[in-house]
Design a protein around this nucleic acid. Structure first.
Lengths: 193, 193
DNA sequence: TTGCAAAGCGGAACAAGGTTCCGTATCGTC
DNA sequence: GACGATACGGAACCTTGTTCCGCTTTGCAA
């Protein structure tokens, strides 16, 4: 919605600034995490704060823009894994690994997935819109194959995984992938009815 | 550290205000969640914001004070469950249920358990100091009995559980206890060596 | 009962973060 | 070269936690 071809053509300085902002944001996110102050990003890009908001209506939109292609890659990997994997449950596991890798790699991105934070609804919505269907497909396949309990909804699982990734970057003691591994393992079969 | 008998005796108005604050905070937490602004609590208690900070050096300390007895109860339930339950794993499960109940009940408490938030270190530390040993005992017992994988550290598990509870209150779609159930189930035995 | 120092109080003021606003500068076209 | 539309910068605003300080209340003692 900010880069589709039908938009009014932008002035050259605007295009240049948008690019600077994306680069500066990416750099700052790596250095200080996704929670870095908007002002820092503006400074780094050599623009005013107002400029950020003209290009990206909200902080979340900037984050989305920075990570969009990685999210796309993750989304596209789903069907591929399902086709390639030995079983749907294995494919689900691998896909979750990708997702977790993404979340854990990005300094604090996970914490931001929860929507009630200041104005992160957009980001939340984007992630979910894009990835929930993929997760649903994997989950369905595994449930249909009788490998896992069938009372887990995709959104629920994604949210749980996201939550488990929170803070994974700060505390070396906390091994999110391990817990997620356990969670996925625990999905197999209902305990007992 | 704010209510032990050896402290200098307080003036009567101070005692009264501390009580009002605890009550007001409890009420506001129920109504608006633990993240409610300090000013709201002060207003509700009919005191100035400064008064809050004289009694509770930081927001987190107020939260601790409000929930202290519930945390104690949870801590004390651990050994009891271990003694009563059929197996250590069952006891662990029940104890986690208690813990989760507590977290989920309190509007947003879970989100606050992660320490990197502004000044919640105290709260984080208190919860962990009090509950991690209990969790350790249960985990040890279950691991020793060979019921669960032995590479899970107490702090790690607690943290994961806490994370899974985040946002449970806001979104009826998100069933934290179910996921936690799966996680606990997934703790049994290493998947494959 | 009255006086006084210590203890406590209220709320203005400060810091930090996101977001908005608007006067000014720049771009692109005629 | 001029002019309107577009974009820019950054000051200003809002919300939240926290600190500070002049004033009030309390409790004790004379």
């Amino acid at each position: 919605m900010s880069d589709d071809g039908t938009a009014r053509p932008k002035r050259s300085d605007a295009k240049r600034n948008e690019q600077s902002l994306l680069e500066a944001a990416a750099a700052v996110f790596v250095a200080s995490g996704v929670e870095a102050p908007v002002r820092d990003i503006a400074t780094r890009a050599g623009v005013g704060t107002g400029t950020i908001y003209r290009h990206f209506p909200t902080r979340a939109d900037l984050i989305i823009a920075v990570y969009r292609h990685q999210v796309e890659a993750c989304a596209e990997a789903g069907p591929a894994l399902l086709a390639a994997g030995p079983t749907p449950h294995a494919a689900l596991g691998h896909w979750i690994d990708l997702f977790v890798d993404f979340l854990v790699t990005k300094h604090g991105l996970a914490a931001v997935l929860r929507s009630d934070n200041t104005g992160f609804d957009t980001l939340h919505a984007y992630f979910l819109d894009r990835l929930v269907p993929v997760c649903a497909q994997l989950l369905d396949a595994a449930a249909t194959a009788g490998e896992i309990r069938s009372d887990i909804r995709p959104l629920e699982l994604m949210r749980g995984i996201g939550n488990l990734c929170i803070g994974a970057h700060e505390d070396p003691t906390y091994n999110a992938p391990k817990l997620i591994d356990a969670l996925i393992a625990g999905l197999r079969h209902p305990p007992k009815p």
